[in-house]
């Protein structure tokens, strides 16, 4: 992400201010070779192998047999698979809806100069530093129906059967990811909010705009590119969520939280059906690419319109 963003930002923004001069030129392809080799070796080659495997039957023991379109046909007839795609999308959408407003508000707040802000921001950043696995295990214990918080707060949790109903389990997954990942997005917004030129606020104050109006009419529009960046991170992260599901719900109750990435894991490493698992993986790649493209198109991110125009 940063690697592609840096040059365009440099070309678009800094050119005007301090041009590096005509003789500088762009770095040759040679400089990108190590990264390109790496990417080819660990991303492109495996991807091709997965694509090939998705047309084969393979249990990891004997050599793979060509299976034609069998895996794909089974995939589209499999109710769990179809459900898992919807669940992936649902979890992603819920994640974006919950995390975006929270992290914008927190980020803008953290960009200010209030008392205790630095201390509170630091504390708030802690979840980001913990591993996803540790966080999931922690919340699993906190949410235990008999010995955790739900046992003490029955007015809120009822019988505490959070992991036993679909709504409860999805709620837990969304909550735990929010707790874990909001700090990252807060950081993005904090940086972006700091970069908003003070002159805009000063002008607005002279015009008599209050805090809320300043937020809606200056801060939010200025954060536009950051919102899109953060949303794409959330969408990609959401569609590939795996560890939280593995530790918190194991796809249950029944198959009610079996999202596609987890279903792929079950097929590959529990059922040893690498053919079907590869088909799911490939489908997930296609769907994620498609969704990312749609987000990029709709948001105009590809054009990278500067928020500094006219300043």
């Amino acid at each position: 992400m940063t690697r592609t963003a840096t040059p365009s930002a440099a070309d678009g923004t800094f050119d005007k201010a301090d041009s590096p001069g005509i003789g500088a030129g762009r770095p040759g392809f040679l400089w990108a070779a190590p990264a390109a080799v790496f990417f080819a070796l660990f991303a492109i080659v495996p991807l091709i192998m997965v694509a090939v495997l998705s047309f084969a039957r393979w249990d990891g023991l004997s050599s793979p047999e060509f299976a034609g379109l069998d895996n794909w046909k089974l995939l589209f007839d499999d109710p769990v698979m179809i459900k898992s795609l919807w669940l992936s999308v649902l979890l992603t959408v819920l994640g974006v809806l919950v995390q975006t407003p929270l992290s914008i508000l927190l980020g803008v707040w953290a960009a200010g100069h209030q008392r205790n802000r630095a201390v509170l921001s630091a504390i708030y950043f802690v979840p980001m530093l913990l591993s996803v696995a540790a966080v999931s295990v922690l919340w699993r214990a906190v949410l235990d129906p008999n010995f955790g918080v739900p046992a003490q707060a029955t007015w809120l949790f009822g019988d505490g059967n959070l992991f036993g109903t679909q709504a409860g389990a999805i709620g837990v997954l969304v909550f735990v990811s929010t707790w874990q990942f909001t700090p990252l997005h807060t950081l993005i917004y904090q940086g972006a909010a700091r970069a908003v030129p003070q002159v805009l606020y000063q002008a607005a104050q002279i015009d008599g705009a209050g805090t809320v109006r300043q937020f809606v009419h200056i801060t939010l529009p200025q954060l536009r590119n950051s919102i899109i960046t953060s949303m794409i991170l959330m969408v990609v992260g959401g569609l590939t969520t795996f560890d939280t599901v593995l530790i918190l719900t194991q796809g249950g109750p029944g198959s009610d939280t079996t999202i596609s990435a987890y279903y792929m894991y079950q097929k590959a490493f529990k059922s040893f059906d690498y053919g079907s698992a590869s088909a799911i993986a490939l489908l997930l790649v296609l769907v994620s690419t498609l969704i990312s493209l749609i987000v990029v198109r709709l948001s105009g991110y590809d054009k990278m319109r500067s928020t500094m125009e006219g300043l």
Binding site: D159, L162, F163, T165
Partner: peptide, 10 residues
């Protein structure tokens, strides 16, 4: 009623 939220392993 909440047996599905309980585990033996933890």
């Amino acid at each position: 009623t909440n047996y599905d939220s309980v585990k033996f392993t933890d």
